[in-house]
């Protein structure tokens, strides 16, 4: 392709999967390099229909949606950014589909624009942190030759990501305040008279929690029912690692640690009214974490756990009924059952 100095190079990032985790990092990086970042629109029914028709049948729902987002971007951009991401921590891996996604897309849709697919795998291939910087530096060459600009872009991007993580993940003190109903972390729940405000943990992958289409806008639904929520993304890492250390085995899927750790933490601390676990159909890691969570919850059933499985055929009405029934059940159980708050624990 001929580089046109008049026009900025356009980089497309599909709004799906890892975008919800690393959006700040990627967008800042490309914008600092002088590229125009185009992000696919929020998931709509049209995107879903394209995705389901195109994607392999056995892929999980979220991966299928990714295909739709790529198609939405296809004709608008010069480059698609689909990193081959294997894991960001030692010993822990992501989903294998994250590594293969770029190559699958290239193979299945031949007329795609050029795909930028840097490979980073700290978990299995033992790439170092410096290796990540080197990869980003090399990637930047497409946009700017000046090494100083590239270095500045990388450092700004990582700062942005750090800030994002900091604002997302709360500390233990804030969690305690939330548990005592002193602060509200997400949207204000619509308060109804004569009813106690419920507290529910919403657990799931970030690309399900933050995508209203694939989670059937469960967050606003709960908000409407007067439920105060906290998501598994916000839970302090320390608490999660503490829970993970209790297991005899290693949960080596990075994002599942967050999910399972959150569920186990609240099963143990009993500071919420209920847990809602959002699973995606045929997600490999979810099938394991979901089963472990269900079984641990059965062994210690004080806090009810609702597991909802989403796929492209999930009807909104059915899901609504189940959530409503769950919330009603929690409301009724309050009178009979005391919820223990951890007010005494830290004195």
């Amino acid at each position: 392709m001929i580089k046109n100095p008049e026009r900025k190079l356009r980089v497309g990032i599909p709004r799906a999967l890892l975008y919800y985790k690393f959006s700040d990092l990627w967008i800042t990086f490309f914008e600092q390099l002088g590229a125009e970042v185009i992000i696919s629109p929020e998931t709509t029914k049209k995107i879903k229909d394209v995705a389901v028709r195109l994607a392999p049948d056995e892929d999980c729902y979220s991966t299928k949606l990714y295909f739709g987002h790529v198609m939405a971007l296809k004709d608008k951009v010069d480059y698609l950014f689909i990193p081959r991401f294997g894991g960001r921590k030692k010993k822990y891996v992501g989903c294998p589909k994250f590594i293969g996604l770029a190559e699958v897309l290239r193979s299945m849709i031949p007329d795609l624009p050029e795909i930028l697919m840097p490979h980073y795998n700290r978990g299995m291939d033992k790439h170092t942190r410096i290796g990540l910087l080197v990869r980003a530096f090399r990637l930047g060459k497409i946009f700017r030759n000046n090494p100083f600009v590239r270095i500045r872009a990388i450092s700004k991007a990582f700062k942005a990501q750090k800030l994002h993580n900091k604002s997302m993940i709360i500390d233990e003190k804030t969690l305690q305040k939330w548990e005592n109903s002193e602060v509200i972390l997400n949207d204000f729940p619509i308060y109804t008279e004569n009813e106690r405000q419920l507290k529910i943990v919403l657990v799931g992958h970030s690309y399900v929690l933050n995508d209203p289409f694939s989670s059937l806008s469960i967050r606003s639904l709960l908000q409407g029912y007067g439920v105060d929520i906290i998501t598994s993304e916000q839970i302090p890492r320390k608490l999660i690692e503490k829970q993970m250390a209790k297991l005899e085995y290693d949960i080596y899927f990075d994002f599942e640690r967050e999910i399972l750790g959150t569920i186990m933490h609240f099963i143990e601390s009993k500071t919420v009214d209920g847990i809602i676990h959002l699973l995606i159909f045929s997600c490999g890691p979810d099938s394991i974490a979901g089963e472990i969570a269900a079984r641990y919850s059965k062994r210690d059933p004080t806090i009810p756990l609702l597991q909802l499985v989403f796929d492209e055929l999930t009807g909104e009405a059915g899901m609504r009924t189940r959530i409503e029934a769950f919330v009603d059940m929690l409301r009724r159980s309050i009178d009979e059952q005391v919820i223990f708050l951890t007010t005494q624990a830290h004195i």
Partner: peptide
Amino acid sequence: PFTCMPEIISRSILPQ
């Protein structure tokens, strides 16, 4: 086998 994560990838690329 159904829902095998790595093999779905190879199945998607095999036609090519």
